[in-house]
């Protein structure tokens, strides 16, 4: 894998962010490369979600720099970020259960009919939307034929696929996924992790926030550990063990101090998500 050699598409340099007295981020640096899955792990409140929000401009950073292809850049909000090619799927799924799969994928960017139907009658082009939705889902190998059913009737994994398909709509280069598997069963998690691999194969730079180290090791190339708003470790998954990552998360100097946690990843997961 030569991902580590390619130039970063997005680079964070010494990002700082405080909410009043709370220093959520205290100088975080990261490099995101195309075709690479970058996992962000850390205890609750470590600043993972905040980091994602500073990238998209939902919560502007107070210090540091964001470099987009080497150029300093800051985004005014998710729409601005999306225009530049950065898409986000939030921790709490932002789908409208009452709307169809296609309407959800195109939410806020509905296609309109061309000609008088569109300009005079302002009619939404559902055929085009449904067709493109099907194409998108197929490109992700998601088996979802009925793009006209309301999203509330779908399984958690399918809903996550809809959210990811929507994030893919603007042909982004960077995809930020905040805990995409948190609420899913084993089978659905598997489904979504496959989706993440497909995004990587399509050449996207993917950031995945997760509390589940097994998932992280299954899907990512690089792991960055955040602790109290700082980078507490960076690991290449091919040459690191889960114990080392756990140690960095909890702040222990070495993994030997936590034998039971290190040996049992499921305990770790429960421990972390408490």
């Amino acid at each position: 894998m030569n991902a580590l050699q390619s130039d970063p598409v997005l680079e964070l340099v010494d990002i700082r962010k405080s909410y009043g007295p709370v220093n959520a981020l205290r100088g975080v640096s990261l490099q995101l490369r195309p075709g690479e899955v970058h996992a962000l792990v850390g205890d609750n409140g470590a600043g993972k979600s905040t980091l994602i929000k500073t990238i998209t401009g939902v919560q502007p950073h107070d210090g540091g720099q964001i470099l987009w292809r080497g150029e300093p850049m800051s985004f005014a909000g998710p729409r601005d970020a999306a225009r530049r090619g950065i898409s986000v799927v939030y921790q709490d799924l932002a789908v409208c259960g009452n709307l169809s799969v296609a309407d959800n994928v195109f939410l806020g960017r509905e296609s309109r009919h061309s000609g008088p139907l569109g300009s005079l009658l302002r009619r939404v082009d559902r055929t085009a939307m449904e067709q493109e939705t099907l194409d998108l889902l197929r490109s992700l190998s998601v088996n979802l034929q009925k793009v006209r059913t309301p999203v509330e009737g779908l399984s958690g994994g399918q809903r996550q696929s809809v959210a990811i398909a929507r994030a893919l709509l603007g042909k982004p280069e960077v995809m930020l996924l905040d805990e995409p598997t948190a609420a899913l069963s084993v089978a659905q998690t598997h489904e979504v992790l496959n989706l993440v691999r497909r995004l990587r194969d399509q050449g996207l730079a993917v950031v995945i926030v997760s509390h589940n180290l097994a998932d992280v090791f299954a899907v990512s190339d690089v792991v960055t550990v955040l602790r109290l708003g700082q980078v507490a470790g960076r690991f290449d998954v091919r040459s690191s063990s889960q114990q080392e990552v756990v140690a960095a998360i909890t702040g222990a100097e070495w993994g030997a101090g936590l034998p039971s946690l290190a040996e049992e990843p499921t305990t770790t997961e429960q421990e972390l998500s408490r």
Binding site: R79, L93, A94, C96, N98, L99, L107, G108, R109, V124
Partner: peptide, 19 residues
Amino acid sequence: GVRLLAIGGNAEAARRAGI
């Protein structure tokens, strides 16, 4: 209309979608 229904279904999702 689609946006009206979206807001009624999940206003936060609609806001994040840039509606």
